[in-house]
């Protein structure tokens, strides 16, 4: 399925994919791994959109993404 319906949907899928890999690790390590992965590879525009979703409650995002949110670098507005 083309995921371009709404770009934010695609971000949810991507964040959840990372979460699924990191979930097999101990929780703290998973949080660390997920946040540093997003910090290292997601450009500011994507992180901004991620925070829009997180700030709105993070519907659709896996719990590990929510848990890792405080460690994700918030881009300059």
């Amino acid at each position: 399925m083309s995921l371009e319906t709404r770009p934010h949907d695609k971000l949810i899928v991507m964040a959840n994919q990372i979460a699924k890999f990191m979930e097999s690790k101990p929780h703290a390590e998973g949080i660390e791994g997920l946040s540093s992965h997003i910090n290292d590879f997601w450009e500011p525009r994507m992180r901004r959109q991620l925070f829009e979703m997180l700030d709105a409650g993070g519907a659709g995002l896996r719990p590990l993404v929510l848990d890792a949110a405080p460690l994700i670098r918030r881009p300059k507005p």
């Binding site: 290292d40 997601w42 450009e43 525009r45 881009p75």
Partner: peptide
């Protein structure tokens, strides 16, 4: 010091208009 756009991100951003 921020990572830039990967190819799929470039295309998404293009469709978004940025």
């Amino acid at each position: 010091n921020e990572p830039g756009l990967r190819i799929p991100n470039m295309l998404d951003a293009a469709v978004e208009g940025t």
